[in-house]
């Protein structure tokens, strides 16, 4: 099971009921293949950077899900058949990969703790404070709308490792 992200673009003037049914169809395909939806994000109507199928704006839906290797293929087949979908893209979620890396890093820090017990606490303390400064720096540079997005992701990546720690 891998975490994937899929984004579809519908016509901007699409009705709410159709959006619901599109999400439901995708949900069905994912479930049929033994997967699970983690998160559905509606970006709403956005302007295109270029003309896309004679249109200038579209309704974006972004879905993160856990699925087997065959799911993306099934989704693509569905997307191709569906005339309401202007564009689509499914990618392996990078967030997951990054989280796995950070967990590995934290594990290696924990392993080094017994060797230098007194220093270990200091190492942990700095590791805890670092993400906060990171966020600030991002917040300073990133424009307002991008802020929420980035901040949300960093929070996610922070919370997940801590969950795993409690499991252990």
């Amino acid at each position: 099971m891998k975490q994937y992200e899929t984004t579809i673009v519908l016509d901007a003037g699409v009705e709410e009921s159709l959006i619901e049914s599109e999400i439901e169809k995708i949900n069905q395909i994912i479930k049929e293949n033994g997967g699970k939806i983690a998160d559905v994000e509606r970006w709403g109507v956005r302007r295109f950077a270029y003309e896309l199928k004679k249109r200038h704006q579209g309704y974006y839906i972004h879905i993160r899900f856990l699925g087997s290797g065959s799911t993306p293929d099934k989704l693509v087949r569905h997307y191709r058949m569906d005339e309401n979908i202007l564009r689509f893209m499914t990618v392996v979620s990078q967030i997951e990969a990054v989280e796995a890396k950070t967990i590995e890093k934290e594990d290696s820090v924990e392993e080094s703790v017994p060797e230098a017990e007194i220093d270990g606490s200091e190492v942990k303390a700095t590791a805890d404070t670092e993400p906060i400064t990171e966020e600030k720096e991002i917040a300073d540079e990133a424009p307002p709308s991008a802020q929420d997005n980035e901040a949300g992701e960093t929070i996610e990546s922070e919370t997940k490792p801590s969950e795993e720690e409690t499991k252990e």
């Binding site: 950077a49 990618v91 990078q94 720096e137 991002i138 991008a146 980035e150």
Partner: peptide, 27 residues
């Protein structure tokens, strides 16, 4: 490298504002 500086592990394709800064006016 500003990504190294800010310790950004991965660059999000959804972050349009960020990406626009690395594209010139010709795209």
């Amino acid at each position: 490298c500003r990504f190294c500086e800010n310790k950004i592990d991965f660059i999000d394709y959804k972050d349009e504002r960020l990406l626009r800064r690395f594209v010139n006016d010709r795209g």
